[in-house]
């Protein structure tokens, strides 16, 4: 059934409603607000924002191993609970549908990625590193000075890593003999 309200009907109704109003019907519906706060009973973990270098504190709220909310850490002396839009978007970094979830491999001349196991990928990379290193390792340079380095492998990264990761990463790379070690700070 389709009932269209005509302009005439509407005006008729308007007279009726005025009558109702004069009878003193309360027009402001009152309903107590009752909704549970989504961070109630969530685990709180403090972190530092992964974007710029201000170093703002953020609290991550999680339930059942899932981040349910992130917001500025009010105790942090730099940001005092506030954040910029990037910091405020941290929830979407933690709950992100576009993340890579498994190691991916692109074979020579292939036009697509394929999922591989960690074991396979790490073993293959280790083998390639060793092959390249062994083939191109320079004990001495052209002048005959001892240099113990490999120039055929290079590395960039990363300011996105934690200090501890940066430290062991450069330690690992230098033990391999790399000299082309660079990262974001250069650009």
């Amino acid at each position: 059934m389709s009932m269209k309200l005509t302009r005439r009907d509407f005006l008729k109704l308007s007279i009726g409603s005025l009558v109702l109003s004069s009878l003193g019907i309360n027009l402001e519906p009152v309903k107590a607000y009752a909704k549970e706060l989504k961070i109630k009973e969530a685990k709180e973990t403090t972190t530092i924002c992964p974007y710029c270098s201000v170093g703002c504190g953020i609290i991550v709220y999680s339930k059942g191993g899932k981040v349910v909310n992130t917001e500025g850490d009010p105790d942090h002396p730099i940001n005092e609970g506030s954040l910029c839009p990037k910091g405020a978007s941290l929830y979407q970094l933690a709950n992100n549908p576009y993340r890579v979830l498994k190691p991916l491999y692109r074979a020579p001349y292939s036009d697509k990625w394929k999922e591989v196991s960690w074991d396979w990928a790490l073993d293959r990379i280790a083998k390639l590193v060793k092959q390249t290193r062994d083939k191109y390792f320079m004990v001495k340079n052209e002048k005959g000075q001892v240099v113990n380095r490999v120039e055929a492998i290079a590395h960039v990264g990363s300011a996105a890593l934690d200090n501890e990761e940066c430290y062991i990463l450069q330690k690992f790379l230098r033990a391999l003999g790399l000299v082309y070690i660079e990262h974001q700070a250069r650009i």
Binding site: M3, K4, L5, R7, L13, S14, L20, S21, I25
Partner: peptide, 22 residues
Amino acid sequence: VVALGEMLKILVAKGLPIENSI
């Protein structure tokens, strides 16, 4: 506004649709 609100309530009570243009 007040009159409109009351009328709309009646419409809802009567099960009549509400058209925005009106």
